[in-house]
Design a protein around this nucleic acid. Structure first.
Length: 158
DNA sequence: GCCAACGTTGGC
DNA sequence: GCCAACGTTGGC
């Protein structure tokens, strides 16, 4: 069991959108960064815990909890010439980018960036490192527990 | 809109 | 393999 933080622009896909999806599950597609892809491909496992982070918005921060469902598979948008995620170098025989399904478990109070930065125990979070832009980052069990405490509940028990 | 920081591309 | 130029991310 591992833990992750996944960024999403709420204008694109918010925690509310995920929770409103069938089975509260949505395909995570459009990742076009090799490091993030490798996390999805090589390290994510069914059932892993996810901090759902709202980025590029008025109030960036952790907005909900989710989990990884199933196994990674080729991201269909890479083959679609009309998609903004189209990759002309990708073929169905040699896919370059992958998707994975994410199931929302709950919306939480907003743990805004300044609050996260104020907590010494979270200082090492990849998210909070200078210049960090990765859309998918690992979260340590200690960081997960710390955030669970901040939220006053036990994530993963839902 | 600005800009720091990072990732990717491509010429050499 | 180096590195300059360019594109993107994302907070502010």
């Amino acid at each position: 069991m591992q833990y992750w933080l996944m960024k999403s622009e709420p204008d694109e896909v918010s925690i509310d959108d995920v929770l409103a999806s069938p089975d509260q599950t949505t395909a995570w597609f459009g990742v076009r960064n090799y490091q993030a892809r490798n996390f999805m491909r090589d390290a994510m496992r069914d059932g892993d815990g996810v901090l759902f982070y709202h980025s590029s918005c008025a109030q960036p921060g952790i907005a909900g909890l989710a989990r990884i469902v199933g196994q990674p598979y080729p991201d269909a948008s890479q083959f679609d010439p009309h998609s903004k995620y189209h990759d002309p170098k990708a073929t169905p025989e040699q896919p370059r980018w992958i998707s994975i399904d994410v199931q929302g478990t709950q919306k939480t109070r907003l743990l805004a960036l300044p609050e996260l930065r104020s907590i010494p125990e979270l200082a090492e979070m990849v998210l909070l490192q200078k210049g960090s832009r990765l859309s998918i980052t690992p979260v340590t069990p200690a960081q997960w527990r710390c955030i669970a405490r901040l939220l006053g509940q036990t994530p993963g028990s839902a």
